[in-house]
């Protein structure tokens, strides 16, 4: 059985006094120990929502309406608060998007590290400090002893993200959820941070859920890929397979939009239109208004995720020619 197993997850937000709109519309996700999974989609597809839902941290007024999240055999949605706290930041850690906002400005790096350790272990200050400094060294922070006493504002964005990664690693988690960990960083630092995350996950056999809109990054780091559109998974399979032979028209659209796939001097490709908001989803397949392969039935029926060989696609007209062995 998978280490993490999400089934039929629905996250709803109130829409007016009675109605609710779904930000996640029945998402499944599996992660084996040490596996690296990419979750890709445009902004608003529900990727971050999925990340926070896994830790049962959807903030008001949103709520998890249906589904289950089984971690190590236990459903996180029905666990008492004290037990879920034992998993958060301990066995499942998270790396946030913007390191400039993630660390508390009035507490030293050291305190923010030690408190994480002390929340999950019986450990004294001196020992926690030693371990924290060791982790700061592992994420290649120069002079970790002095950084331990620094305040976040005294560090650059790249260093702060390293601190956040060090915090995530403190308790030797089994899974790290990284929500666009490089989006807010300078381009020059993005590759370094991504390489660091990849190396640490490999070395410590930590499972990774990498949430991003950058297919280029995902191709280098992850083994498996999940493409999300308007709160649903539209395609799921091995990274290599999806990138070489996209099965869903949306996956193909995303790949075609990558700048490196366009010859010099040519116009960049884009998918026409924009993704619908959660409150005004079209009938049928949510992607059909933008899909060049849409047929009459796509406007009426909602496709389900169906197995096509080793991958799963949610489309009435998947691109399968030559894709499967």
């Amino acid at each position: 059985m998978a280490l993490l197993e999400v089934r039929g997850l629905e996250v709803a937000f109130p829409q007016g006094p009675r109605d609710e709109a779904l930000a996640l519309r029945g998402v499944d996700l599996d992660l084996d120990p040490g596996e690296r999974l990419g979750v890709v989609g445009e902004s608003g597809a529900g990727k971050s929502m999925l990340a926070f839902a896994i830790l049962n941290l959807i903030s008001e007024p949103g709520r998890i309406r249906a589904g289950s999240i089984r971690f190590d055999g236990r459903n996180l949605l029905t666990l008492p608060p004290a037990e879920i706290r034992n998993i958060r930041g301990n066995r499942i850690a998270m790396i946030f998007q913007d390191p400039m906002m993630t660390l508390n400005p009035v507490l030293t790096i050291g305190r923010q590290m030690v408190e994480t350790l002390q929340a999950h272990r019986r450990i004294g200050w001196a020992e926690a400090r030693k371990l924290s400094i060791e982790r700061l060294g592992q994420v290649a922070i120069p002079t970790p002893e002095s950084r331990f006493d620094s305040y976040p504002h005294e560090l650059s964005g790249g260093l702060r993200q390293r601190v956040v990664i060090a915090i995530a690693l403190l308790t030797d988690p089994e899974i790290i959820i990284a929500d666009e960990p490089t989006t807010a960083l300078d381009v020059t630092i993005q590759a370094e941070i991504m390489a660091l995350i990849l190396r640490l996950c490999r070395d410590h056999r930590v499972g990774l859920i990498l949430i991003t809109h950058d297919l280029g990054v995902v191709a280098e780091v992850t083994e498996r890929l999940m493409i999300m559109y308007a709160g649903k998974v539209v395609e799921e399979g091995s990274t290599r397979q999806l990138i070489e032979h996209p099965g869903h028209p949306y996956t193909r659209g995303l790949l075609a939009a990558l700048p490196q796939r366009v010859a010099r001097g040519q116009t960049l490709n884009q998918i026409p239109g924009t993704m619908p908001g959660i409150a005004d989803l079209p009938a049928g397949c949510a992607y059909h208004p933008r899909c060049e392969r849409a047929i009459a039935g796509c406007h009426i029926n909602i496709p389900v995720l169906e197995a096509h060989g080793s991958r799963r696609i949610s489309c009435f007209r998947p691109l399968l020619a030559g894709a499967e062995a």
């Binding site: 926070f52 830790l55 941290l57 903030s59 608060p81 706290r85 034992n86 998993i87 958060r88 930041g89 301990n90 850690a93 998270m94 946030f96 913007d98 906002m101 993630t102 660390l103 508390n104 400005p105 009035v106 507490l107 408190e115 994480t116 929340a119 999950h120 956040v164 915090i167």
Partner: peptide, 23 residues
């Protein structure tokens, strides 16, 4: 975000409220 991160670190509610938010 830093309060959200504090929750994600698995801190007790008291600590999130009084140390992270209230300060």
């Amino acid at each position: 975000e830093y309060v959200r991160f504090a929750w994600a670190k698995g801190l007790a509610a008291r600590r999130v409220w009084f140390v992270h938010a209230f300060r």
